[in-house]
Design a protein around this nucleic acid. Structure first.
Lengths: 130, 130
DNA sequence: ATAAACTCCGTACCAAAGTACTGAGTCAAG
DNA sequence: CTTGACTCAGTACTTTGGTACGGAGTTTAT
Protein backbone atom coordinates (compact mmCIF):
# COMPACT_ATOMS: atom_id res chain seq x y z
CA UNK A 1 0.00 0.00 0.00
CA UNK A 2 1.08 3.47 -0.83
CA UNK A 3 -0.02 6.97 -0.02
CA UNK A 4 1.02 10.56 -0.56
CA UNK A 5 2.79 12.50 2.12
CA UNK A 6 -0.31 14.12 3.52
CA UNK A 7 -1.95 10.72 3.97
CA UNK A 8 1.09 9.55 5.86
CA UNK A 9 0.94 12.58 8.13
CA UNK A 10 -2.77 12.19 8.72
CA UNK A 11 -2.46 8.46 9.35
CA UNK A 12 0.09 9.03 12.06
CA UNK A 13 -1.34 12.27 13.31
CA UNK A 14 1.67 14.45 12.68
CA UNK A 15 2.46 17.43 10.55
CA UNK A 16 3.48 17.00 6.92
CA UNK A 17 6.48 19.13 7.65
CA UNK A 18 7.57 16.70 10.30
CA UNK A 19 7.67 13.93 7.74
CA UNK A 20 9.82 16.08 5.50
CA UNK A 21 11.94 16.97 8.50
CA UNK A 22 12.61 13.30 9.19
CA UNK A 23 13.55 12.86 5.57
CA UNK A 24 16.02 15.69 5.81
CA UNK A 25 17.42 14.15 8.98
CA UNK A 26 17.78 10.85 7.19
CA UNK A 27 15.55 9.04 9.66
CA UNK A 28 13.31 7.84 6.88
CA UNK A 29 14.09 7.67 3.23
CA UNK A 30 12.24 9.72 0.70
CA UNK A 31 10.50 7.62 -1.92
CA UNK A 32 11.69 8.19 -5.47
CA UNK A 33 9.73 10.78 -7.37
CA UNK A 34 7.68 9.09 -10.08
CA UNK A 35 7.89 10.44 -13.61
CA UNK A 36 4.44 11.79 -13.20
CA UNK A 37 2.52 12.46 -10.05
CA UNK A 38 3.50 12.66 -6.42
CA UNK A 39 5.82 10.56 -4.30
CA UNK A 40 4.22 7.45 -2.88
CA UNK A 41 5.06 6.41 0.67
CA UNK A 42 5.08 2.69 1.47
CA UNK A 43 3.73 1.16 4.66
CA UNK A 44 7.32 0.48 5.64
CA UNK A 45 7.94 4.19 6.02
CA UNK A 46 4.77 4.67 8.02
CA UNK A 47 5.90 1.92 10.37
CA UNK A 48 9.30 3.48 10.66
CA UNK A 49 7.77 6.80 11.67
CA UNK A 50 5.62 5.00 14.22
CA UNK A 51 8.76 3.43 15.59
CA UNK A 52 10.27 6.90 15.89
CA UNK A 53 7.20 8.24 17.63
CA UNK A 54 7.02 5.39 20.10
CA UNK A 55 10.65 5.76 20.90
CA UNK A 56 10.14 9.46 21.47
CA UNK A 57 7.39 8.64 23.92
CA UNK A 58 9.91 6.53 25.76
CA UNK A 59 12.05 9.61 26.06
CA UNK A 60 14.60 8.89 23.37
CA UNK A 61 15.87 11.86 21.40
CA UNK A 62 15.94 11.78 17.61
CA UNK A 63 19.66 11.31 17.75
CA UNK A 64 19.29 8.29 19.98
CA UNK A 65 16.51 6.96 17.79
CA UNK A 66 18.83 7.23 14.84
CA UNK A 67 21.08 4.94 16.82
CA UNK A 68 18.23 2.57 17.60
CA UNK A 69 17.22 2.39 13.97
CA UNK A 70 20.79 1.70 12.96
CA UNK A 71 20.98 -1.01 15.60
CA UNK A 72 17.71 -2.54 14.58
CA UNK A 73 19.44 -5.72 13.58
CA UNK A 74 22.40 -5.38 15.88
CA UNK A 75 23.10 -7.72 18.76
CA UNK A 76 20.65 -7.37 21.58
CA UNK A 77 23.36 -6.33 24.04
CA UNK A 78 23.98 -3.04 22.28
CA UNK A 79 20.33 -2.11 22.27
CA UNK A 80 20.06 -3.14 25.89
CA UNK A 81 22.91 -0.85 26.80
CA UNK A 82 21.19 2.10 25.21
CA UNK A 83 17.96 1.39 27.07
CA UNK A 84 19.93 0.91 30.27
CA UNK A 85 21.50 4.34 29.92
CA UNK A 86 18.15 5.89 29.23
CA UNK A 87 16.70 4.23 32.30
CA UNK A 88 19.39 5.73 34.50
CA UNK A 89 18.73 9.16 33.04
CA UNK A 90 15.01 8.76 33.60
CA UNK A 91 15.53 7.75 37.20
CA UNK A 92 17.81 10.71 37.79
CA UNK A 93 15.22 13.04 36.37
CA UNK A 94 12.56 11.50 38.58
CA UNK A 95 14.70 12.25 41.56
CA UNK A 96 15.14 15.86 40.52
CA UNK A 97 11.42 16.23 40.07
CA UNK A 98 10.77 14.72 43.46
CA UNK A 99 13.01 17.25 45.14
CA UNK A 100 11.38 19.96 43.12
CA UNK A 101 7.93 18.82 44.14
CA UNK A 102 8.89 18.86 47.80
CA UNK A 103 10.26 22.37 47.51
CA UNK A 104 7.10 23.59 45.81
CA UNK A 105 4.86 21.91 48.38
CA UNK A 106 6.89 23.51 51.12
CA UNK A 107 6.48 26.92 49.54
CA UNK A 108 2.76 26.41 49.05
CA UNK A 109 2.21 25.34 52.62
CA UNK A 110 3.89 28.53 53.73
CA UNK A 111 1.47 30.42 51.54
CA UNK A 112 -1.49 28.65 53.03
CA UNK A 113 -0.51 29.67 56.53
CA UNK A 114 -0.01 33.21 55.45
CA UNK A 115 -2.59 35.70 56.72
CA UNK A 116 -0.93 38.68 55.11
CA UNK A 117 -2.06 38.66 51.51
CA UNK A 118 0.21 41.57 50.64
CA UNK A 119 3.44 39.71 51.30
CA UNK A 120 4.09 36.38 49.72
CA UNK A 121 6.37 33.92 51.46
CA UNK A 122 7.17 32.32 48.12
CA UNK A 123 8.67 35.48 46.75
CA UNK A 124 10.44 36.11 50.00
CA UNK A 125 11.98 32.69 50.23
CA UNK A 126 13.24 33.01 46.71
CA UNK A 127 14.94 36.24 47.67
CA UNK A 128 18.28 35.20 49.10
CA UNK A 129 18.98 38.45 50.91
CA UNK A 130 16.08 37.96 53.29
CA UNK B 1 28.22 48.10 46.85
CA UNK B 2 28.99 47.97 43.20
CA UNK B 3 30.95 45.81 40.88
CA UNK B 4 31.69 45.37 37.19
CA UNK B 5 29.93 42.73 35.15
CA UNK B 6 32.65 40.12 35.49
CA UNK B 7 32.54 40.42 39.28
CA UNK B 8 28.81 39.86 39.15
CA UNK B 9 29.26 36.77 37.03
CA UNK B 10 31.99 35.41 39.27
CA UNK B 11 30.04 36.18 42.42
CA UNK B 12 27.10 34.15 41.19
CA UNK B 13 29.08 31.59 39.32
CA UNK B 14 27.62 32.22 35.89
CA UNK B 15 28.93 33.36 32.56
CA UNK B 16 29.30 37.07 31.80
CA UNK B 17 27.32 36.46 28.67
CA UNK B 18 24.46 35.15 30.72
CA UNK B 19 24.28 38.42 32.59
CA UNK B 20 24.14 40.29 29.32
CA UNK B 21 21.55 37.84 28.09
CA UNK B 22 19.33 38.60 31.05
CA UNK B 23 19.75 42.29 30.32
CA UNK B 24 18.65 41.77 26.76
CA UNK B 25 15.69 39.77 27.99
CA UNK B 26 14.78 42.59 30.36
CA UNK B 27 15.05 40.35 33.40
CA UNK B 28 17.52 42.70 35.01
CA UNK B 29 18.20 46.27 34.12
CA UNK B 30 21.50 47.40 32.77
CA UNK B 31 23.15 50.04 34.96
CA UNK B 32 23.71 53.38 33.26
CA UNK B 33 27.07 53.72 31.63
CA UNK B 34 29.18 56.21 33.57
CA UNK B 35 30.89 59.03 31.67
CA UNK B 36 34.15 57.28 32.25
CA UNK B 37 34.82 53.70 33.14
CA UNK B 38 32.65 50.61 33.15
CA UNK B 39 29.07 49.99 34.22
CA UNK B 40 28.68 49.33 37.91
CA UNK B 41 26.24 46.66 39.04
CA UNK B 42 24.48 47.17 42.38
CA UNK B 43 23.83 44.43 44.91
CA UNK B 44 20.17 44.68 43.96
CA UNK B 45 20.93 43.28 40.54
CA UNK B 46 23.03 40.47 41.98
CA UNK B 47 20.14 39.53 44.25
CA UNK B 48 17.77 39.63 41.34
CA UNK B 49 19.94 37.23 39.38
CA UNK B 50 20.11 34.94 42.40
CA UNK B 51 16.33 35.01 42.51
CA UNK B 52 16.27 34.02 38.87
CA UNK B 53 18.71 31.18 39.43
CA UNK B 54 16.85 29.82 42.42
CA UNK B 55 13.60 29.94 40.55
CA UNK B 56 15.19 28.08 37.68
CA UNK B 57 16.25 25.38 40.10
CA UNK B 58 12.62 25.07 41.05
CA UNK B 59 11.85 24.40 37.42
CA UNK B 60 10.45 27.76 36.41
CA UNK B 61 11.27 28.92 32.90
CA UNK B 62 12.66 32.39 32.30
CA UNK B 63 9.28 33.47 31.03
CA UNK B 64 7.62 32.31 34.21
CA UNK B 65 10.32 33.96 36.27
CA UNK B 66 9.60 37.19 34.45
CA UNK B 67 6.08 36.76 35.75
CA UNK B 68 7.30 36.02 39.25
CA UNK B 69 9.48 39.09 39.23
CA UNK B 70 6.59 41.21 38.03
CA UNK B 71 4.45 39.76 40.80
CA UNK B 72 7.08 40.29 43.43
CA UNK B 73 4.88 42.69 45.27
CA UNK B 74 1.60 41.31 44.08
CA UNK B 75 -0.93 39.68 46.40
CA UNK B 76 0.21 36.34 47.66
CA UNK B 77 -2.70 34.54 45.99
CA UNK B 78 -1.40 35.29 42.52
CA UNK B 79 2.04 33.98 43.30
CA UNK B 80 0.53 30.95 44.93
CA UNK B 81 -1.47 30.24 41.82
CA UNK B 82 1.67 30.22 39.70
CA UNK B 83 3.44 27.86 42.07
CA UNK B 84 0.33 25.70 42.18
CA UNK B 85 0.32 25.41 38.40
CA UNK B 86 3.99 24.55 38.39
CA UNK B 87 3.39 21.88 40.99
CA UNK B 88 0.72 20.25 38.88
CA UNK B 89 3.03 20.28 35.88
CA UNK B 90 5.81 18.76 37.93
CA UNK B 91 3.54 16.02 39.19
CA UNK B 92 2.34 15.29 35.71
CA UNK B 93 5.90 15.01 34.50
CA UNK B 94 6.71 12.68 37.37
CA UNK B 95 3.87 10.47 36.29
CA UNK B 96 5.11 10.43 32.72
CA UNK B 97 8.55 9.49 33.87
CA UNK B 98 7.18 6.75 36.06
CA UNK B 99 5.34 5.20 33.15
CA UNK B 100 8.45 5.62 31.08
CA UNK B 101 10.56 3.93 33.71
CA UNK B 102 8.19 1.00 33.86
CA UNK B 103 8.23 0.63 30.09
CA UNK B 104 12.00 0.66 30.01
CA UNK B 105 12.26 -1.85 32.85
CA UNK B 106 9.83 -4.09 31.04
CA UNK B 107 11.88 -3.89 27.87
CA UNK B 108 15.08 -4.59 29.74
CA UNK B 109 13.68 -7.60 31.49
CA UNK B 110 12.66 -9.00 28.12
CA UNK B 111 16.23 -8.51 27.01
CA UNK B 112 17.57 -10.31 30.03
CA UNK B 113 15.48 -13.36 29.31
CA UNK B 114 16.49 -13.34 25.70
CA UNK B 115 18.80 -16.17 24.67
CA UNK B 116 18.93 -15.09 21.07
CA UNK B 117 21.51 -12.35 20.93
CA UNK B 118 20.80 -11.65 17.28
CA UNK B 119 17.23 -10.49 17.80
CA UNK B 120 16.46 -7.80 20.29
CA UNK B 121 13.02 -7.72 21.90
CA UNK B 122 13.39 -3.99 22.50
CA UNK B 123 13.60 -3.26 18.84
CA UNK B 124 10.81 -5.66 18.13
CA UNK B 125 8.45 -4.27 20.68
CA UNK B 126 9.00 -0.80 19.33
CA UNK B 127 7.98 -2.03 15.93
CA UNK B 128 4.21 -1.64 15.79
CA UNK B 129 3.66 -3.97 12.89
CA UNK B 130 4.83 -6.96 14.90
C1' DA C 1 54.13 54.06 28.63
C1' DT C 2 52.90 49.96 27.18
C1' DA C 3 50.96 45.37 27.55
C1' DA C 4 47.53 42.45 29.59
C1' DA C 5 43.09 42.24 31.08
C1' DC C 6 38.75 43.83 31.12
C1' DT C 7 34.39 46.04 29.06
C1' DC C 8 31.20 47.31 25.51
C1' DC C 9 28.20 46.44 21.63
C1' DG C 10 26.29 44.19 18.07
C1' DT C 11 25.86 40.28 15.84
C1' DA C 12 26.12 35.44 15.01
C1' DC C 13 25.87 30.84 16.50
C1' DC C 14 24.47 26.40 19.22
C1' DA C 15 21.05 22.28 20.00
C1' DA C 16 16.43 20.20 19.40
C1' DA C 17 12.48 19.35 17.08
C1' DG C 18 10.03 21.02 14.42
C1' DT C 19 6.95 24.84 11.69
C1' DA C 20 6.19 28.23 8.02
C1' DC C 21 6.63 30.28 3.52
C1' DT C 22 7.25 30.86 -1.33
C1' DG C 23 6.79 29.91 -5.98
C1' DA C 24 6.53 26.64 -8.72
C1' DG C 25 4.21 22.14 -10.58
C1' DT C 26 0.31 18.67 -10.57
C1' DC C 27 -4.04 16.63 -9.85
C1' DA C 28 -9.10 16.03 -9.27
C1' DA C 29 -13.80 17.83 -9.47
C1' DG C 30 -17.38 20.44 -11.35
C1' DC D 1 -11.13 24.16 -18.48
C1' DT D 2 -10.65 26.34 -14.63
C1' DT D 3 -10.55 26.45 -9.69
C1' DG D 4 -9.19 24.60 -5.41
C1' DA D 5 -6.44 21.34 -3.18
C1' DC D 6 -2.35 19.09 -2.98
C1' DT D 7 2.87 18.40 -3.66
C1' DC D 8 7.60 19.72 -4.20
C1' DA D 9 12.05 22.00 -3.03
C1' DG D 10 14.55 25.03 -0.75
C1' DT D 11 15.06 28.18 2.56
C1' DA D 12 13.91 30.70 6.65
C1' DC D 13 11.89 31.13 11.09
C1' DT D 14 10.53 29.47 15.96
C1' DT D 15 11.60 28.56 21.02
C1' DT D 16 14.75 28.21 25.11
C1' DG D 17 18.72 29.44 27.39
C1' DG D 18 22.38 30.65 26.62
C1' DT D 19 27.58 30.96 24.30
C1' DA D 20 31.00 32.94 21.06
C1' DC D 21 33.22 36.42 18.27
C1' DG D 22 35.32 40.66 16.69
C1' DG D 23 36.78 45.20 16.98
C1' DA D 24 36.92 49.13 19.63
C1' DG D 25 37.50 51.50 24.02
C1' DT D 26 39.25 51.44 29.16
C1' DT D 27 41.66 50.24 33.10
C1' DT D 28 45.28 48.26 35.70
C1' DA D 29 49.79 46.57 36.55
C1' DT D 30 54.50 46.74 35.68
Amino acid sequence: MSRTISKVAKEIGINIETVRFYERKGLIKQPAKPLQGYRQYPTETVDRIRFIKRSQELGFTLKEIEGLLALSDAPCRQVEELAQKKLIAVQKKQNDLLRLEKALLELLSQCQNNKDNTHCPIIESLQPNL
